[in-house]
Every structure is written in structure tokens, then in C-alpha cells.
Design a protein around this nucleic acid. Structure first.
Lengths: 221, 221
DNA sequence: GCATAGTTCAAACGGTCGTTTGAACTGGAG
DNA sequence: CTCCAGTTCAAACGACCGTTTGAACTATGC
């Protein structure tokens, strides 16, 4: 690894100013896959934008799909971590409300990812786009990253809404998942500047309020 | 047009038992585009399944995108007609409730299209998939078919919810649009048989109830 | 019959796709 | 220095893409 010269006992802190080829590929893949989807984005478009050779993808990742898988894993990791942290915190205090659980799910997806400048929006769009890619294969690839905490959220919602049947809670959950993804991918912002160009905090508040009302009073049975 | 021999004054009622090449192409395009998306579906896959020559697409439609455009127009036409009809009927009686307006929007998308056997589900999945295709170009192509009645629904929702700001009503509308599309495309049914394999009427009722609660009590400002 | 417009067909066009190859380059280890 | 694993590179691979061509076929109108 000549790139990061941190081998050996001494930390040499070369502080490479430019990202490694691998990191540049992941960054550009996030952006392009988020704009054009998986099928609609070619490896050549990615490698050109990343100033890398086309063979670098297969060298660092193995295939186009493996590149996507790595990008999804990297993008979802902080979101999953934050969701777990919030859920731990809520459950430690015991008996969280539906609003608290919903907020703990939505805000890490919009907040944490939409803040910190332009890259956050890129990551959000990437996640939202991949979550509902036309190809079932790609969707499952995303689901594999999202599933592990799904059962925890389902259980938390169920205890917050004891009157609702498990089917109704699951119905609300997938609706929440879908609406979040659509807002993340910015596919719901057709009229410019109507509701999404504003700060993500406001969008998160609107979405949480929308979902809380639906969960509290909109679940049948 | 040797296919349908209905020319001349006399109706000869040849009653061609098989659909025309043009119709077969539209039918298969609905199915395949709905399964794999626009970019993920090749004209060759469509023409082979339709038992047509690859050149037939460009002969009957002009291009791949024109085929999609024709398929979208054909699939949306009855939905738009039914939505207009319901809205006319509601407005004739004056002052419809939010639930009535929401129902008039959702049910034509699920009901009318999910009933009548297997083809209905194919059309629904096609519409839902195209509505949120990764390519903005494709999404706009769908929006062009859906927009004409959008303003009418926005106005009806606004009068049913006078306390809500126009921005809030628009926010609810796009959420309704998105959730409907996701259910149409069957992208929200990951666990088999949980909530979507049931009859579409139940799904429509669940979705309407979910949205009514969100509209009535979940819109901020 | 012949002419004709509509439709289908096999074949090929140039281009782009994801992937692979093998050589060239890089920089620390011995 | 030599060695060597890690990385980059230009080039090519076969496959598939959407589109076009021009001839062949079909059924009607004259």
C-alpha cells in the first residue's frame, strides 16, 4: 500500500491530501448511482469522473455490483449506527412513544445525512435511490443493510401502539421506509423550492408529524 | 392495415383473435418495464417476448422512449379518466371531505387497476415503477401524464383542509403520490404475504385510512 | 391480372457495456 | 542496489445495446 504510508511502528502521518483511488471511486459512485440509478450509470462514467482507470474498479472491488455494495455499506453505516444509538437511548428510558421511535428512525436518515454541506445530500440521494431501484436484486442489496435493525423498530413501534395489529404496524413501517427514501432521493420535489430546498430540519419535522398522525390514528384493526 | 380488415363501408368483423403486433409490444413493454425498469429492459427482450421483430418497435413507435411514452399514456388513460369522473361527481355535490378526495385519488390507482385478473397487477406495477424511475427524464415523462389533474386535486384538498397552508397540502399530496406509486410497484412488499398479497380492496382501505389521518392531523402550519 | 401501401423480416450498423489481460510503474523491505 | 507486493495503465475482449437498412411478404384497391 504505497498510498497511505502508515506502515511500520512509527506513524508517519503523511496526511495524503487527496483521497485514495478507492475512496474517490466510492465518492463518485455515490453521486452517479444516486443520479442515474445502477443500470443507468456506467463504470466508465464513474472512473472518468474519479480520474481513475476503468480497471481500478475490478481491482479494488471486483465488479460493478461489488462497488455498489461497498458504497451502500459505507453510506448506511453511520445511519445504522445513529439509529441503534437512539433506539438504545430510548429503550433505556423505557416505553418510548411512537413519535420518539419514528423520530429516531427518520432523523438519522435526513438530518445526519443532509447536514454537513453538499456531500450529505449526495449520500441521501444515493441511499434513497438504491432503496427503490427498479431491479429487485439491487433493492435486496440495500435491504440487507437495513434489515438488521428493522425488527427492533417494529418491536418498538408495536409496544408504543398496543392497539394496532402486527400487520398494521408493519404496514406503517414500510410506508415510513418508503416515504423517507423518496424524500432522501429528492424524487418528491417536482416544484422547485416548494418544500425540499429548505433546510432538512424542517423537512424532517414535517415528515415526522405526517407519520406520527398516520401511525397514531391511521392504522386499521 | 391488413391486420384489422375493417376498412370500407361494411364492417367485416374479422375478429382477429390475436392482438396486433403493436398491442403485443405495448403489453410486453408494460410487463418488462415494470419488472426491470426502463434502463434495465432491452428492446430485444421485449420483442422476443412479444414474438415480434426488433425493427417493429421503431416501425410502430419510432424509438424505445417513444414505446415507453405510448405505454405510459395507454396505462394512465383509464386511471385519469376515473379520477376526473370521481372528482366531478364529488364537486357536483359540493364540499367533499379530505377522505373523499383522497379516496378518489387512491382507489382508481389500486382498485381499477389491480382488479380484473393478472394484467391489472402488471399495469399497476408498470405505473408505479415508471413514476419513480431513477432517470429524471423518465419521471418527467410520467409526470406529464399525471400533472393535468394534479391542480384539481390540490385545490380540492385545500378546500377540505382550510386550516392547512398550501405548502402543507402540497407536501401531503406528494406523499400520497409517492406512497401510492410504491404500493403499485409492489416495492413495499418484502415479506411475502404480509400485506399486499391480499386483495387490493383491503390495501386501498389501509392506505386511505393511513393518508386520511396524516392529512387531517399530520400537516404542520 | 397489376399496382400499392402496410407490415414483417434477417442482417448489419456504430457504439457502449462490464470485464480481463499483461505490462509498466511505485515505493518500502531486505 | 535488488526484490517484490501493491497499484495503475492502455488496450482489447466478447457481448449486448438502440437503431437502420432494404428486401420480402401480405392483403386490399384498381
Amino acid at each position: 500500500m504505497p498510498e497511505r504510508a502508515v506502515a511500520g511502528g512509527k506513524e508517519k502521518f503523511v496526511e495524503t491530501p487527496v483521497e485514495s483511488t478507492r475512496e474517490r471511486l466510492l465518492n463518485v459512485a455515490e453521486q452517479r448511482f444516486g443520479e442515474g440509478g445502477y443500470e443507468g450509470t456506467s463504470l466508465r462514467a464513474i472512473t472518468v469522473a474519479a480520474a481513475a482507470n476503468i480497471a481500478a474498479v475490478n481491482y479494488h472491488f471486483g465488479s460493478k455490483e461489488a462497488l455498489l455494495r461497498a458504497a451502500v455499506a459505507r453510506a448506511m453505516a453511520p445511519v445504522n449506527t445513529e439509529r441503534r444509538r437512539r433506539l438504545d437511548q430510548l429503550e433505556a428510558r423505557g416505553g418510548p412513544s411512537a413519535e420518539q421511535v419514528i423520530r429516531a428512525f427518520i432523523e438519522p436518515g435526513l438530518d445526519l445525512v443532509l447536514r454537513r454541506g453538499e456531500r450529505g445530500a449526495v449520500v441521501a440521494r444515493f441511499i434513497g435511490r438504491i432503496a427503490f431501484d427498479p431491479s429487485q436484486r439491487i433493492r435486496e442489496l440495500y435491504a440487507a443493510e437495513s434489515d438488521p435493525i428493522e425488527s427492533r423498530y417494529l418491536a418498538a413501534l408495536q409496544s408504543a401502539l398496543p392497539h394496532a395489529s402486527p400487520e398494521a404496524v408493519a404496514f406503517g413501517y414500510v410506508n415510513m421506509l418508503g416515504l423517507l427514501a423518496l424524500h432522501q432521493s429528492q424524487a418528491l420535489s417536482r416544484a422547485p423550492g416548494v418544500d425540499d430546498a429548505e433546510d432538512p430540519g424542517k423537512l424532517a419535522e414535517n415528515l415526522v408529524a405526517f407519520l406520527v398522525a398516520a401511525f397514531d390514528r391511521g392504522l386499521r384493526t
